[in-house]
Computed example of a mutant assay.
Amino acid sequence: MPQIDFQEVMDMLSKTDKRRTYPLWQEDDCLAFIARGREYRSEFHLNPSFEMQYSLKGDLHLHWRDAENKVHISHVPEGSCLYQPPLVPHSPRFGPEAFQLVIERKRRPGEVDRFHWFCPSCDHFLHEETFVVADYGADPVSRAYDRFWSNMDARTCKQCGTVMPDK
């Protein structure tokens, strides 16, 4: 049975700007990882699994969209946790010195994760990135971000012309 020293993982993640997540385990029915600061996030993730997010250090501001696409923000203070059902568009945002423990179900064969970006001016849908998460250690969030930020057409609103500012 794995025994994890959270402080050791947080210290390791604090010493690098390149890596923001550290997978703790990846089993058939459960994966867990620690994430450091998501202050740069602007997209909404649609995850086919549930998620449980525990604020190890610092506060989480979970931006999420309801069935009518209205944005809400749930505040999760340090020491608290939040359960999120599958397929709720969400955008976890927390400072660079904050850490979250995230537990979710490992993806089943054929399940697709989606990232949606919206115009910062008029909230019009901008772009979707999709992918299959086979290994969370490959940091799929960063891969989706790299594709989005390198695509000026995807970052430009077709409704009002605003260009999503670079992260």
Rank of each mutant, 00 (worst) to 15 (best):
Q3K: 12
Q3W: 14
D5Y: 11
E8L: 12
E8S: 15
M10K: 02
M12R: 14
L13D: 10
S14R: 13
K15F: 02
K15P: 01
T16Y: 04
D17N: 15
K18M: 00
R20K: 12
P23T: 12
P23A: 10
W25F: 13
D29T: 07
L31P: 00
A32G: 14
F33Y: 10
A35K: 08
R38T: 15
R38N: 15
Y40C: 00
R41K: 01
R41E: 04
S42C: 09
S42L: 13
E43N: 12
F44S: 02
F44K: 02
H45R: 12
L46T: 13
L46W: 10
P48C: 07
P48D: 12
E51C: 05
Y54N: 05
L56T: 08
K57L: 13
D59G: 03
L60G: 03
L60T: 04
W64S: 09
W64A: 00
R65I: 01
N69R: 12
N69L: 06
N69Y: 09
N69T: 03
K70C: 08
V71I: 08
H72D: 02
H72Y: 09
H72F: 08
S74C: 11
S74E: 15
V76Q: 03
V76C: 10
P77T: 06
E78G: 06
S80I: 00
P86R: 07
V88Y: 03
V88F: 01
V88G: 07
P89F: 05
P89A: 01
H90T: 11
H90Q: 08
S91Q: 10
R93I: 13
F94W: 02
P96Y: 01
E97F: 08
F99Y: 15
L101P: 03
K106E: 11
R107E: 06
R107I: 10
R107P: 04
R107D: 05
P109K: 12
G110S: 09
F115N: 09
W117M: 04
C119V: 03
C119P: 11
S121F: 00
S121V: 10
C122W: 05
H124V: 03
H124L: 02
F125T: 05
L126E: 10
H127A: 12
H127L: 01
E128Y: 00
E128L: 01
E129R: 01
T130Q: 15
F131M: 14
F131E: 07
V133H: 09
G137R: 05
D139E: 14
D139Q: 07
D139H: 00
D139T: 04
S142A: 10
R143W: 00
A144M: 12
A144L: 04
A144C: 14
Y145P: 04
D146P: 08
R147C: 02
R147G: 02
F148R: 11
F148C: 13
W149Y: 15
W149L: 11
S150H: 13
D153I: 03
A154Y: 03
A154F: 04
A154K: 07
T156M: 03
Q159F: 07
G161Q: 12
T162Q: 11
V163H: 05
V163W: 05
M164I: 00
